[in-house]
């Protein structure tokens, strides 16, 4: 089956700093992929390239087999309008939520639908309420984000992304900014999404989530993929020394059994 997302030989430089040095990654439909690595490994940059929040320096990214951008003189050129359309098909949730503080929860989830997808307000509201119910926050629809807890804000952010009916969801360290007791509700929502068949790519430090929910774990080091495999393989019996060191550093994670 053709992968839904294909990354081919992706390179990304920031000035003279090479962050991604040739990444190949395929994600099939319904798969949950977790990207691991220490800071500076490029995992967030890779995620942000997939929905073109950052523009790749070289390499090709395909969605459903179709390459993004146009080839011109051996380089890939990206047009703003094409990227905007693309971003409606890929959802992203951020570490710091980034909810729109001047709008209610419901308006936050409706905004993209109305302004970008040009759905009618009635349709947008109905879909918004459906997504809010899906993340368990429909009763907070008329509240402003300032009144919510961190975990609730993040779940609203997830609903906001889901309301666009994306084919892939990207999660960028979405629990890192949360108080420990609020992390659980967000991970529970993400697990639920995975079980419902959403294609997900997550950058996270939550190794428990990676072990129990992910289909595949990819370990990045210095801009390249060092090791890749099932959670049991990468987390249970890592081959690379660096992966072992990384896991030891996360001493809270103990292998079950």
């Amino acid at each position: 089956m053709q992968p839904i997302v294909q990354v081919q030989d992706l390179h990304k430089n920031f000035g003279s700093l090479e962050v991604l040095r040739g990444i190949d990654l395929d994600v099939t439909e319904g798969e949950t992929v977790v990207l691991l690595g220490s800071s500076g490994s490029g995992k967030s940059t890779l995620l942000r390239c997939i929905n073109f929040m950052e523009e790749p320096s070289s390499g090709i990214i395909r969605l459903h087999g179709k390459a993004v951008g146009q080839q011109r003189n051996g380089r890939t050129v990206y047009r703003g309008a094409e990227l905007c359309k693309l971003r409606t098909r890929i959802g992203m949730v951020f570490q710091h939520f980034n909810l729109f503080p001047h709008m209610t929860v419901l308006q936050n989830v409706m905004e993209g639908q109305v302004t970008v997808l040009r759905r009618s307000r009635e349709e947008a509201e109905a879909k918004a309420m459906k997504q809010l119910a899906r993340v368990g926050l429909d009763e907070k629809a008329r509240e402003f984000p300032a009144r919510l807890s961190g975990g609730q804000k993040q779940r609203v952010a997830i609903a906001r992304a889901l309301a666009m009916d994306p084919e892939v969801m990207l999660f960028d360290e979405v629990t890192s900014a949360l108080d420990p007791e609020l992390v659980g509700e967000v991970l529970k929502t993400m697990r639920q999404l995975a079980e419902e068949g959403m294609t997900m790519i997550c950058v996270t430090h939550e190794l428990g989530f990676a072990y129990h929910v992910a289909n595949r774990v990819t370990f990045l080091h210095q801009g390249q993929i060092l090791e890749e495999g099932t959670p049991q393989e990468v987390l249970g019996a890592p081959k690379a020394q660096r992966v072992r060191e990384f896991l030891e550093g996360h001493s809270l994670f103990k292998l079950p059994g």
Partner: peptide, 27 residues
């Protein structure tokens, strides 16, 4: 205005103009 607001708007496919009009300027 926090850069995160630009990021969130970009991620749901808004253009610069839409972001300014709906998200940034009102705040």
């Amino acid at each position: 205005i926090d850069k995160g607001q630009w990021e969130a708007s970009k991620a749901i496919g808004m253009t610069r103009g839409q972001t300014l009009r709906r998200i940034i300027l009102p705040q």
